[in-house]
């Protein structure tokens, strides 16, 4: 007997309703059997495919470890959480929702800082003057660090921020932030602006799988059927 195909999906937040809608339009209705706050879901009439409700940012690593077979979450989270994704993960389908950009934002009144070169300048003078490094608050430490390495930026320091990052500057926790934005509204309302060349990643929701799992399950009918339904090739 083949075991069930387990797919991790976000348990709450912005993505959740789009995910439900996406499955519904692909003949996979998500139904709730248990209590309102119970984290159990099933696909209607499908017992061979098991949705697993999880924190959106935990999904990539659980797929990487093989605890679940497939995952659906933001690309930003996949790339951030699984550093060797190119070797261990297969991206199955990019979805046309959950669009968001990982960007660098800074106070709007820094009128002389508009590019990474300007930021590098400021970081250097700040360090020289105060012997402190310019602080960048972000939830995406790995992506930001990689971006700065390729752009040859130094003299900065990453401060971890697990949420409400847009407020980090006003609260004195950081000088600059790197965060996800879809409309830019939160940034504007917090008097922040974007760097001209500070786009780190264009993200959207994506379905991906553990590479080993896909290779070992080439003849798994449930998996094949699921992939056909969600429209991968």
């Amino acid at each position: 007997m083949q075991s069930r195909v387990r797919i991790g999906i976000p348990s709450k937040g912005r993505l959740k309703s789009s995910v439900e809608k996406f499955f519904r339009t692909n003949s996979l209705d998500l139904i709730k059997n248990g209590l309102e706050r119970e984290y159990v879901l099933n696909f209607e009439n499908r017992t061979d495919i098991q949705p697993v409700l999880m924190n959106a940012s935990d999904i990539p690593l659980e797929v990487r470890k093989g605890n679940i077979d497939l995952g659906l979450t933001g690309k930003d989270l996949l790339y951030e959480k699984v550093s060797d994704w190119s070797k261990t993960i297969v991206e199955i389908r990019q979805l046309n929702f959950g669009f968001a950009n990982l960007v660098i934002a800074l106070p709007r009144f820094w009128v002389d800082v508009n590019t990474l070169d300007d930021l590098d300048d400021i970081a250097h003078f700040y360090r020289k003057k105060s012997s402190k490094r310019l602080k960048i608050a972000t939830k995406y430490q790995n992506l930001v660090r990689e971006f700065f390495v390729t752009r040859e930026l130094v003299d900065y320091q990453i401060v971890e921020s697990q949420g409400a990052t847009e407020g980090a500057i006003k609260n004195g926790l950081a000088d600059v932030i790197a965060d996800i934005t879809s409309t830019g509204e939160t940034l504007t309302q917090n008097n922040l602006k974007l760097l001209d060349d500070g786009l780190i990643l264009k993200s959207s929701a994506t379905i991906f799988a553990n590479k080993d799992y896909i290779e070992k399950n080439k003849n798994n009918e449930s998996l094949k059927d699921f992939l056909r339904l969600i429209g991968s090739d």
Binding site: R133, R145, E146, F148, V149, V154, D155, Y156, Q157, I158
Partner: peptide, 11 residues
């Protein structure tokens, strides 16, 4: 060390 080498150290 971080102060000397910066975030690159972590890489």
């Amino acid at each position: 060390l971080l102060d000397l080498y910066g975030e690159d150290l972590r890489l």
